[in-house]
Simulated assay, not measured.
Amino acid sequence: MLITLFPSLESLSLLWLQITLAAAWVVLIILIAWGVSHFTNSEPEIIRKIVHIGTGNVILIAWWLNIPAIVGITASIFASIITLLSYIFPILPGINSVGRQSLGTFFYALSIGILVAGFWYLQQPQYAVIGILTMAWGDGLAALIGQRFGKHKYQLLGSNKSWEGSLTMTFFSFLINMFILLATQGNIWQTWIISIVVAIVATTLEAFSFLGIDNLTVPVGSAALAYSLIQILVLN
């Protein structure tokens, strides 16, 4: 499957269809979050994680539909600009309000652009998917589980964490890596070892989340590590 940086003129109609489907998914997630916010008594953290997890899945649509890299990069740039402006103006108050100083939303948008630019160019989009989904599902569910059920607390660089949340991060990071690597590399022993290692490293990176930097280090670090380990253990 050839992945190109710029779409050809002949594929313009297909491109618009791809963009429409991806945009429709993001709009759907935002509408779901809006509905939950306005018609239920859900906590603000629930609303943020619906957006956090839901929008992250757009990377799957980009992968499956073979959306050109320039689309993802452009969307990341616009999203990054909007999130930066939202820290000055109340554009996304419900999403950015996390009860502490954080640039997490900006780093999240930035990480998507970095991973699409890097792994679409290498024609290895599955690693961008690994990075974004590890952040979306692993970190998103870790925050929810940790806040609701986290009884055993620890602190790193001013960030309050729980062992329950961290174990959730490890478990779902492992599942994401395992499923994607099974689909792309097959059921080989390296798939299981790499999934475990990436999950542990992702959990460690997530623990150091001052200023929301984990929204950048977790996806980029997970993707880069998975890619590197495949090169070392499988392709060499």
Score class of each variant (00 low, 15 high):
Ile132His: 02
Leu103Lys: 07
Val98Glu: 05
Phe174Ile: 12
Leu133Asn: 01
Tyr154His: 07
Ile29Cys: 00
Tyr154Cys: 01
Gly158Glu: 01
Ser166Gln: 03
Ala22Trp: 03
Ile200Trp: 12
Ser195Phe: 10
Arg48Asn: 07
Trp16Ser: 05
Thr170Gln: 09
Ser76Gln: 11
His52Lys: 11
Thr170Met: 13
Pro44Met: 01
Tyr127Cys: 00
Thr4Ser: 14
Leu65Gly: 01
Pro90Phe: 08
His38Gly: 09
Ala183Trp: 12
Phe89Asp: 12
Ala24Met: 07
Ile53Asn: 06
Ala62Met: 15
Leu115Phe: 00
Ser209Ala: 14
Thr105Met: 11
Gly140Tyr: 06
Val234Glu: 06
Asp139Ile: 04
Ile53Glu: 00
Leu167Met: 14
Ile112Gln: 11
Met1Asp: 07
Trp34Val: 11
His38Leu: 10
Leu12Ile: 15
Thr74Asp: 01
Val129Ile: 13
Thr168Tyr: 00
Val198Ala: 05
Thr134Glu: 09
Asn41Trp: 10
Leu205Ile: 03
Ser11Thr: 14
Phe172Gly: 04
Gly54Glu: 04
Gly158Pro: 09
Ala23Ile: 10
Ile59Val: 15
Gly158Lys: 13
Pro125Met: 03
Glu45Trp: 09
Ser228Asp: 13
Glu45Val: 15
Leu60Asn: 03
Asp214Pro: 02
Asp214Ala: 13
Ala223Leu: 08
Gly186Val: 09
Asn96Thr: 05
Gln101Ala: 08
Ile95Met: 08
Leu122His: 10
Trp189Gly: 00
Asn66Glu: 12
Val116Gln: 03
Thr105Asp: 15
Ile19Pro: 01
Ala117Gln: 02
Tyr127Leu: 07
Ile232Gly: 06
Lys161Gln: 02
Asn177Val: 12
Met1Cys: 06
Ile188Glu: 03
Gln147Trp: 02
Asn187Asp: 14
Ile88Tyr: 06
Ile81Trp: 08
Glu164Gly: 08
Asn236Ile: 13
Leu17Pro: 03
Gly158Arg: 10
Ser162Pro: 11
Leu235His: 11
Ala202Gln: 02
Leu17Met: 12
Leu17Gly: 14
Ser173Arg: 07
Ser37Glu: 14
Gly212Thr: 10
Gln147Ala: 14
Ile130Gln: 02
Ile230Leu: 13
Trp16Thr: 13
Ile61Trp: 05
Ala207Val: 00
Gly150Ile: 01
